[in-house]
């Protein structure tokens, strides 16, 4: 058990909370986390500051915003098979946090393939639901390895669309497009700049701004004062460690 003498937060725990923050203020919409740390973040948000959030169990169930009486189990509050997920996507009642094999300064994301699409050097997942997600509702990204290989000048295949493509599409087609935040193992980034290009929003505790810039394959907008990503509260740490991920699988996602 954790208690007053608990150890300080690990990087993975800071990232869980940074992911959770992406859904703050979203209300009763479906959180769509891809990856363990975003999934822990969505559940943490739901159990603390965002109780209205809908969270999937990874199959077709929805988890109620409470812990089972046993303390560590879950309570199912709803049913959401894939066909209903697609309807929630089109209805805009969702905010997804996807991964990215490549992400550019405008927030164009690639999870399909590396190299020429016709004969890729590396076939990856495929576009999945990224095109539909990015044109229908807010999307955020989780990058466990912030590097120049991932944060690139140009993506090989635009799956989730960024602000330049949304602008080219114009109104009214682009009215539901929003890339909210990018959480990495080094920092939190957003697109709150006049040209809607990527900006450093905060660095995780102990990470120098120079390290973030060096690991990014394009120029980042950097505010005069760069905030530090907030640390988990004692209550959040206890939830993460004792309830949501007692086996500490979160630490492996950053290796």
């Amino acid at each position: 058990m954790t208690g007053p003498g608990m150890t300080g937060p690990t990087l993975a725990e800071i990232c869980v909370v940074a992911c959770a923050e992406a859904w703050r203020g979203d209300g009763a919409i479906l959180a769509g986390p891809m990856g363990l740390i975003p999934a822990l973040g969505a559940r943490l948000a739901q159990l603390t500051f965002a109780p209205d959030l809908l969270v999937s169990d990874g199959e077709a169930g929805l988890l109620a915003p409470l812990l089972a009486p046993s303390g560590s189990g879950t309570v199912t509050e709803g049913w959401l098979p894939y066909r209903s997920v697609f309807t929630m996507v089109a209805a805009g009642r969702r905010h997804v946090m996807m991964g990215a094999s490549q992400l550019d300064r405008f927030g164009n994301q690639n999870i399909s393939c590396i190299g020429d699409w016709a004969r890729p050097k590396a076939q990856l997942l495929g576009v999945r639901g990224a095109p539909g997600n990015s044109i229908n509702h807010p999307v955020s990204y989780w990058l466990p390895r912030h590097s120049r290989r991932v944060l690139v000048e140009r993506v090989d295949m635009a799956c989730g669309i960024g602000y330049d493509r949304a602008a080219a599409l114009g109104a009214p087609g682009n009215r539901f497009h929003e890339v909210r935040v990018v959480v990495t193992n080094l920092a939190v980034l957003d697109f709150r700049t006049p040209a809607r290009t990527m900006r450093l929003r905060s660095v995780h505790p102990g990470v120098p701004v120079g390290d973030v810039l060096a690991a990014t394959g394009f120029p980042l907008t950097v505010p005069d004062e760069v905030p530090v990503t907030r640390r988990p509260s004692a209550g959040e740490l206890a939830l993460i460690r004792d309830q949501l991920d007692p086996a500490a699988r979160r630490e492996r996602e950053l290796r």
């Binding site: 996507v89 089109a90 399909s112 699409w117 576009v127 639901g129 990224a130 095109p131 539909g132 990015s134 044109i135 229908n136 295949m157 635009a158 799956c159 989730g160 669309i161 493509r165 949304a166 080219a168 599409l169 087609g173 682009n174 539901f176 497009h177």
Partner: peptide
């Protein structure tokens, strides 16, 4: 459908 617009799905 709205999905696909602006993405490289339309290109490939």
């Amino acid at each position: 459908i709205r999905a696909g617009l602006g993405s490289d799905v339309m290109r490939v």
